[in-house]
Nucleic acid binder design. Structure first.
Lengths: 391, 391
DNA sequence: AATCTTAATGGTGGACTTCATCATAAATTC
DNA sequence: GAATTTATGATGAAGTCCACCATTAAGATT
């Protein structure tokens, strides 16, 4: 009912102040004591004690004096992002992508390996293992340096991180992905829907950086969606939020097929290239192709407006493979949406490319760590010890 | 990025503890010092000081000793809900309903006045004024006792509380409702969509008390919806969340008309009674009526499943005028939803009746006060002084 | 009716945290 | 080299919480 206001001990106040300082340092970059005192709204003397505590714990390091200022040069302090590592995985239909980042979310290393949708589960898991190993060796980290791993997978992922159902990947439903990766790394592993992570990535570092309420539209041969509200990916009561694709009127699972039979596309074009060819023809002005695109956009708009009317976002981000053809899609989609919405959201194309999901996984991991590690109950734990296992 | 961890002064710690004690007292009812110390996780000595502070401020009062226990009888303390009043208004098409409650949300008085959808704006506002006055005199309160008023109105209400657009009520779009009521009461006035308030009421005190994620379906001659996520009504980027009714495929604005032309209903039945007659006939087993109900339910299910797939609720609550015929609607609607959802939500009928919106308005007001008054920044202000104007 | 048990109450001292203030130190600038 | 600017270090004061102990007030027992 009322939101939890927790006071407590004097030591707790100290913890609160330490966390406040740490948060200010993380958000505002390297700072002097005076700046930090101002941002955290604490006295200099207090901040000094707090910061020296944090340095002992390993969370904060002193930087080389920069000089260039007028008076006595102030010591500058920074958050030690290198204290731990976050691993982001994108397990898609055609590739497995691994990204290692520090606690600030800076990407340190990327590994990618191709897979096919038809591969059996064991082979795909082996590919995941190889990517994880390559990530570790490539970034010079050991398994114990990784504090949390987040894996994005297609399909409906429930609140416990189980892949309940996947249509895009063969033999993948109810795969024990978290256990598999967790056994290898010995850290907490979160599994999330890939669209949701992509949406988060666009919201944090992409086209939606200034927009907390958005719908991410994953368009490709299959279509999916994710919703972000107040900057937080919406999971819903069971993790199925955004799965508008199964609605009987929209049938987004096969909406990509609307882009098949167009005269302008030569017979014999490989299936994966058909859509691109249609877009290309539409770009050139081919009437048949434009008609196909319009039919496709109409269906997409119907589904999108249903979601938009439900959650009233400020922005719709067009992502996924077809977003490369945003120049052809954006305008007609915008026109269609205009006719169906009460408060038509803006429409923009994704900008993060194919590392989108992995970057979102890193963001998700960093934020999860923030919530659990930097917790007022436990205070900032020593940075050297890896965090306790959590889910 | 990181959620705000604010520490601060020693006095701030005291404020935090005072608020923590107050929150515990509000949530847990009257308590002894020992119980309170346990709930707020503070030492008895501390709680004692905090509580005597709160008594001086007027937030807490001592109760009569109850006795009946074994040892020395403990003094029991309670939150002084009577320190202020919250006014909830439901401005509907056919009635204006006013409810006065204390800060605990206990309803003290109710006033109702009939109106018609066709009445001009001035008449409707005059009716609102009369209801407000009757609420004050009826509950023995003066205008300055009312700390906040919340008005529920049909139509699209934006984030600033402006009624942007109303189709159900004539001459109502962009009415300056908050200003009008605020001028009369001299307190903050919030305006919200009525379905959203009804949803909140069901979530706090109705059929959904244990369910934080739900969709409230307002069914009647016109249909509307509202979404509650994690116990919070979803407004969206511009306050239009839940307005699925304007979607071209669902046309919920006139979905009630599907219940018109049924042979079992005698010609000449007044328009308002037709739907009820159809439901009655369907209840008796009339085939034509059952068919009409089924057609109606199909449309409703399409819209509901679109929303459900978007936000993945645990529950759909059937409310509004037609929910009186839930016995006829629930089962077919459940069956239809079953075929369209990935994770089919539970389906229940509203239980709060026609005071639903006003009760939701009170809940909303109480919770808004909790957020603004009981704010760690300002600490618990003296209870006697009415709160500063806020929006 | 006197005594025992139970549990709340009141008070004291100690430990801790934060803050304001002042004198000092280390750079740049003139 | 002096003046200026800014950071640093140290001290004392004030505020807050907690553990502990003796005291008080009621019901339960004999």
């Amino acid at each position: 009912m009322t939101h939890p206001v927790t006071g407590g001990d004097l030591q707790r106040l100290r913890r609160l102040n330490a966390l406040s300082a740490l948060a200010a340092l993380r958000a505002g970059g390297p700072m002097t004591l005076t700046q930090l005192a101002e941002r955290a709204d604490l006295a200099r003397a207090t901040i000094k004690v707090v910061v020296s505590d944090l340095m002992e714990l390993g969370w904060v390091a002193q930087m080389d004096p920069s000089g260039g200022e007028k008076g006595r040069p102030a010591r500058r302090y920074r958050f030690r992002g290198e204290a731990g590592r976050v691993l982001g995985l994108d397990i898609g239909a055609h590739k497995v992508l691994g990204v290692v980042a520090d606690l600030d979310g800076n990407v340190l290393h990327t590994t990618r390996e191709p897979v096919t949708p038809e591969q059996p589960r064991a082979e795909r898991l082996a590919a995941v293992d190889r990517v994880v190993d390559a990530c570790l060796t490539g970034s010079g980290a050991s398994a114990s340096d990784v504090w949390i791993a987040v894996a994005g997978s297609t399909g409906y992922v429930d609140l416990q991180g189980r892949v309940v159902l996947s249509r895009a990947i063969q033999d993948w439903s109810s795969v024990p992905l978290a256990d598999h990766v967790g056994a290898r790394l010995g850290c907490a592993v979160l599994v999330e829907n890939d669209s949701r992570l992509a949406a988060l990535a666009e919201c944090r570092r992409g086209i939606a950086r200034d927009t907390p309420n958005l719908i991410f539209l994953h368009v490709g041969r299959r279509a999916g969606a994710a919703v972000v509200l107040d900057g937080v990916p919406l999971r819903g009561g069971g993790g199925a939020a955004g799965e508008i694709g199964v609605h009987p009127l929209f049938n987004l699972g096969h909406v990509g097929e609307l882009l098949q039979a167009v005269p302008a596309v030569e017979p014999g074009t490989p299936p994966d290239a058909v859509a691109g060819a249609v877009f290309e023809a539409a770009r050139r002005g081919d009437a048949g192709a434009r008609g196909a695109v319009l039919r496709y956009v109409k269906v997409l708009a119907l589904a999108t407006s249903a979601m938009a009317l439900t959650v009233d976002p400020d922005l719709v981000v067009l992502g996924g493979g077809f977003s490369r053809s945003a120049d052809v899609l954006l305008e007609p989609l915008r026109d269609e949406l205009e006719t169906m919405c009460l408060r038509t959201p803006e429409l923009r194309a994704s900008v993060l490319g194919d590392e989108c999901v992995a970057v979102g996984a890193v963001c998700y991991g960093v934020e999860h760590l923030s919530k659990t590690l930097f917790n007022p109950e436990t205070g900032p734990l020593p940075a050297d010890t890896p965090p306790p296992l959590m889910v």
